[in-house]
């Protein structure tokens, strides 16, 4: 376990170096967050009862999403991993006495959390001081907040486990471009990156809520505001644990198969 923590640590430190990128990211996320909130507020003004989520819940959803973007977004790709497969640096990872799946998992989690840590504070700070109704609310209770924290960790796990399947496919396709755009669009949409899942048409929503993508940001962001609360939230956590375990099992199987036919690119 210690070696994986060590990988986590160095990836975390490495990612903390990019301060300018983080500052640029923060600026983008602000702009995007305000844009989304203004758009939604226009819709709500037209008819507040026509929407499946309270406006305050939606506002919290968007601010949290922007603050913790690096944790939850599917398009956030672990380029160290994809480049290792595409460019052949994987040779150096395979000569370490480590399980490659666990290593990449630790590495991805580290990169995402380091970046989230760098970016979240200024966004949350502003989100808590802008005037109502655009201000982000506090969670309804402490247990609800605790569930939000657990759910965020699980969500990060599900996102990383899903990307791991995408990475394995690069062993076969030798290029991350295709799989990346497919993942970014489809998984991103079904995870609620563009609009929260409750806003989907009922029939699509019914299916989307069963898919592993609903175990990503959908859960923590809605649990925070109390949109999913109490027993439902506990069920939500169980749903996340289920998909996380299944995705890890699938990912490991796929990776073991791929490693048997690994070709190190570029000599």
């Amino acid at each position: 376990m210690k070696k994986y923590l060590a990988v986590f640590r160095i990836r975390f430190i490495n990612a903390l170096q990019y301060r300018a990128a983080a500052a640029a990211g923060v600026a983008t996320q602000f702009a995007w967050g305000f844009l989304e909130i203004f758009a939604f507020s226009a819709f709500y003004r037209a008819n507040p009862n026509a929407f499946p989520m309270e406006f305050s819940h939606t506002v919290s959803y968007i601010w949290l999403q922007q603050a913790f973007l690096a944790l939850f977004m599917m398009w956030f790709w672990e380029s160290d991993v994809t480049e290792a497969i595409e460019g052949g640096a994987i040779a150096y990872e395979l000569i370490r006495p480590m399980d490659l799946y666990k290593r990449w998992f630790a590495q991805s989690c580290a990169n995402r959390s380091a970046r989230a840590l760098l970016r979240c504070a200024p966004i949350l700070l502003i989100a808590f001081i802008v005037p109502k109704p655009y201000r982000m609310g506090l969670p309804p209770s402490l247990p609800q907040f605790t569930m939000f924290v657990i759910s965020s960790a699980l969500s990060l796990g599900v996102v990383v486990a899903t990307s791991m399947l995408a990475y394995v496919s690069i062993f076969y396709t030798l290029s991350s471009t295709g799989i990346r755009s497919v993942f970014t669009t489809i998984v991103g949409f079904l995870a609620g990156e563009y609009i929260p899942i409750p806003f989907f048409p009922p029939s699509i929503r019914a299916i989307a809520e069963l898919l592993p993508f609903a175990a990503m940001q959908n859960m923590p962001l809605r649990i925070y505001s109390g949109n999913i609360a109490g027993r439902d939230a506990l069920w939500g956590l169980a749903f996340q644990v289920f998909w996380l375990s299944l995705l890890i099992v699938l990912g490991r199987l796929a990776m073991n198969r791929a490693l048997k036919r690994v070709v190190v690119q570029g000599g």
Partner: peptide, 29 residues
């Protein structure tokens, strides 16, 4: 075993060399 691939690097790009060494220490216990 120890391996050096002359055309690639096993050191982490953005951190001091000694950090990479410490990582190797932990990886190989």
């Amino acid at each position: 075993i120890g391996v050096v691939f002359g055309q690639r690097s096993q050191l982490w790009w953005d951190v001091p060399v000694v950090d990479s060494f410490e990582l190797i220490k932990d990886i190989y216990k």
